[in-house]
Amino acid sequence: MSSEAPMAGDFLSLLAGRKLPPWRAEPSASAPVQTQATTVFAFHFGEGVLMAGDRRATAGNVIVTDRVDKVIEIDATSLLAIAGVPATAFEMARVLQTSFEYYRRSQLQPLSLPAKVRALARLLRENLPMTMQGIGVVAPLFAGLDHSFSPPKPQIYFYDPLGAQFQAVDYVASGSGSGTIRSILSFQEQYGNPRPSQMNLAQAVKFALRLLMVASEFDSATGGVNPATETYATIRVLRSTGVEAVTDEQQSKFLNLKP
């Protein structure tokens, strides 16, 4: 076999062979004002992993939109939450979506969780020239199913902008509102009743919405949640059976539930 032949099941090498790389990072003297997307977080709850994000994107002091979906279903068992520059992050999500499905269909088996985790690290490393210039920086969160457990166990990973990957034991947050959210999650995990890891879906969703409400009080780039304008978060859960979306209607219902 030729060394130039694409690696079996690897979508990026297929694109490279056809001279269609997903993005080309070129050095630039000056950076434009960038659209930024914050805030995202994930935590283990009683039924799996909950991953959530507000829906605001900003550029400097300008609110670009309050309708961004920052928690993206990559495939039936993987979630990506993006914090940073959406232009780069959405492209990474698209590469991962196509790559994971390409591998599954062409090799007739799903990609393992470690390989999925590394695939995102690889994209972050390939984005290094942009990161070093301070533009196109992405600090994502990833959740996937670990099939070495039976039933498969949802796991959370986070990354630094250079591509280092870390596993989150209880919770993780990224983006400009993450400081507030991590503090509350830490407090709740140590002293809360119930702790996030013991919550059911309704409790976990209500807790997640409240986290964003508080974060938005301290961080103007976090959009928060406003039931009066029907502005909710993007929330998805990963159970041992796969990914499920939590709709705006469900969020409204859970938020109004009495304790």
Binding site: L14, L15, L20, P22, R94, V95, Y102, R105, S106
Partner: peptide, 14 residues
């Protein structure tokens, strides 16, 4: 099968 999968995914991505 492989040729069809390659073509479909390249088309979908580009």
């Amino acid at each position: 099968r492989q040729a069809a999968i390659d073509a479909a995914h390249t088309e979908a991505f580009t």
